[in-house]
Amino acid sequence: MLALLHTSSVHVPVFDTLRDRDYPGLPLRHVVSEELLTRAQADGPDAVAGDIDQALASTVAEGAAAVLCTCSTIGGVAETRAAALGVPVLRVDRPMAVAAVAVAPRGARTTTQIVVIAALAGTVGPTVALIDEEAARSGRSVTVMATVVDGAWGRFEAGDQAGYLSAIAAAVEAVDDADVIVLAQASMAAAANHTTTAIPVLSSPVPGLRAAAAAAVSRPARRTA
């Protein structure tokens, strides 16, 4: 079983659909805790480390072989909880960051120019830090610029999914000088379907679930209760 930690219920059908398409039969256990993001915004991502343990402890006891955190704001902290939980804990955006730094610079550039599109200001720091980490790991030279889409998060919180995705797509279309565009939050993924840009646009759900599914199926099921 793969456990998924979400800070919004909108992710549940998205990952169920991807599972049905790519990993039929893989059991998923969804844990939704919106307050984790609320607290992380107010007190910083490190403040929710213990809450992540608490939110996922029962799923691990029930047999979760791995955990995927789908929230980019707290994903970096979630990764550090693997030892406490006793199973691999992955952040959904790491495979996307790996792919972004692997994109070759265009033209005469020697550094890959990455533009991060975010709907929430608190996501920018963790996402940029992740990209820088993967660039250093791979020995690649990157320049990262970030844009927070004005008003997008308000639309998301209001349940205006169409308006939210439209705002994200417009921000993507406005980028005219980059080697790759990164959609910082998993909830943005569908916006890529509404763009015509020639610049590669990367999102996290598909590669994130791929990595987590591989981690889950490579470990024997655990049951301690």
Rank of each mutant, 00 (worst) to 15 (best):
Y164N: 10
A167W: 05
A216D: 11
A99N: 06
V115P: 09
A108M: 08
A121K: 00
A198E: 15
V217I: 14
A171R: 04
I117A: 05
T110E: 14
N193P: 07
A221D: 14
T197D: 11
R210I: 03
S204Q: 12
A170P: 01
A152T: 01
P126G: 07
A174H: 02
Q185N: 11
V148T: 13
A189G: 14
V103Q: 05
S218A: 15
P105C: 07
S218F: 06
V172R: 00
H194K: 12
V128D: 10
T197L: 07
A146H: 01
I117N: 09
A186K: 09
T147R: 14
R106I: 08
A189E: 01
A152Q: 03
R219S: 14
A198Y: 07
A170K: 06
F156S: 00
V182I: 09
V142S: 03
P200I: 03
S203H: 15
D177F: 04
R106D: 10
A211S: 13
A158F: 11
T127M: 00
T196R: 15
G122I: 05
D150R: 04
A190R: 13
A184Y: 04
A102S: 13
A169P: 11
M145L: 15
M188N: 04
W153E: 14
S204R: 10
L165H: 05
I199A: 12
G151K: 01
E157Y: 10
Q185W: 12
P205G: 04
D150G: 08
A174Q: 13
A152G: 02
T197K: 05
A190T: 12
V124N: 05
V172Q: 01
T111F: 02
S218L: 00
V172A: 07
Y164R: 09
A174N: 11
R140H: 10
Q113I: 08
G151Q: 01
E133T: 12
R140Y: 10
T147M: 09
G139Q: 11
V201G: 08
L130G: 07
V206F: 04
V116Q: 04
G163E: 09
R137D: 14
E134F: 06
A146E: 06
R155L: 13
A136S: 13
Q113N: 09
E157F: 03
A178M: 03
A118R: 04
A129G: 10
Q113F: 03
Y164H: 12
A174G: 08
V101S: 02
V182K: 02
A104M: 06
A186C: 10
